[in-house]
């Protein structure tokens, strides 16, 4: 799943660095992801993983790292 998340970040995250060089727990905002880019990442994640983030998860922190995104999607897939 992390590879799919990385592919989405590469396409939509507008990162200032190569996503391949980022650790799973690296701060994506520090890596250059803007708030607007994070919205596109959120929408792409919903399309790819067939989930819908509820309002309580539409927060900056939920998308701050690959690990955080993975945890959020795992939670939605289990729910």
């Amino acid at each position: 799943m992390n590879d799919e998340i990385r592919a989405i970040l590469k396409e939509h995250g507008r990162l200032a660095v190569d996503v391949a060089g980022l650790a799973d727990d690296a701060d994506l905002y520090q890596a250059g992801m803007t708030s607007h880019a994070s919205v596109n990442v959120m929408l792409a994640l919903e399309g790819t993983f067939d989930v819908e983030f509820p309002d309580r998860m539409l927060r900056r922190g939920v998308f701050e790292s690959i690990a955080a995104i993975r945890a959020a999607i795992d939670e939605l897939k289990q729910g």
Partner: peptide, 14 residues
């Protein structure tokens, strides 16, 4: 929109 909720939360948080 829903993305706007993320933008608003980031604005508040910061």
């Amino acid at each position: 929109g829903r993305g706007g909720k993320m933008l608003a939360s980031a604005q508040l948080e910061q």
